[in-house]
Amino acid sequence: MLAVTLDKIIKVYDKGHLAVDEVSFSVKQGELFGLIGPDGAGKTSIFRILTTLLLPDGGKASVMGFDVEDDFKKIRETVGYMPGKFSLYPDLSVEENLTFFATLFNTTLAENYDLIKDIYVQIEPFKDRRAGKLSGGMKQKLALCCALIHRPTVLFLDEPTTGVDTVSRKEFWEMLKRLKTQGITILVSTPYMDEATLCERIALIQDGKILSIDEPQNIIAQYPDPLYAIKSERMSELLKHLRKHPEIKSCFAFGEYHHISFKKDDEAVHKSLLQSLETKGHKQLDFKTMEPSIEDCFIRLMN
């Protein structure tokens, strides 16, 4: 049985805004599945439909074989959910929050302690502190503990790493990997493209539509053109010159380098480009082939 299935799910908000446009995908049991896309792509709507918080306006969806509309009570018993916004009680202490959510799900902290132990030991020193006084990273760990406390079979994490700094983000993904070994199916959404490769399979989503679903490596392998990276002393001018160059198919800034692909890709074209750039006064030109990243793929799929 598949852990999660969506079949042509549609969600329309008032004013006719189509937030989710015939989205279909499925998640296998025990899989770490990522929903990757910018704000407003429809990630949260999909999560809310799957967690039975919203009814779809079309299509069918199920979680662990239960229909999101008819069997919503069963789904609520089996899933763990961490909404995008920090959603614990800031005026309750760490321990009080945990105890409350444990009781809510008819369990105790002790019963499933082994599952959250790795995470909980990190926040245990602050267990008497009010949740509102915790740092971003700590809040996130506590929220994850609360979502896990009843040993859910499917875990929904809506943008758990948004607004969290790099260090905490890395730690968080480590925790998810460890959870996966416990057999929990995890659905996670993120606007950060660099986190895509940490998932087993991903769906790239934009404007309510799925752009691509596959393993990250396969999506990268499907990138049609050879990709090159180029840099010089003056990056912003380099970008302008590249855009005007007739042989360039695509070109965009990408951190330290600009990423480019050619209409007709051969040595001669490369040479003529570098020459023309040098005549335009670019020094210390660095040109090399580049393995595309998920972000490269996303940009290509968007255009």
């Binding site: 809310r48 967690t51 039975t52 918080l53 009570k73 609520r76 018993e77 899933v79 959910y81 961490m82 909404p83 995008g84 916004k85 920090f86 959603s87 614990l88 009680y89 800031p90 959510f101 809510l104 799900f105 008819n106 609360c146 979502a147």
Partner: peptide, 13 residues
Amino acid sequence: EMGTMEVLLVSPF
């Protein structure tokens, strides 16, 4: 407002 209602609703309670 805090988002806790979401978590409460997605619970067997």
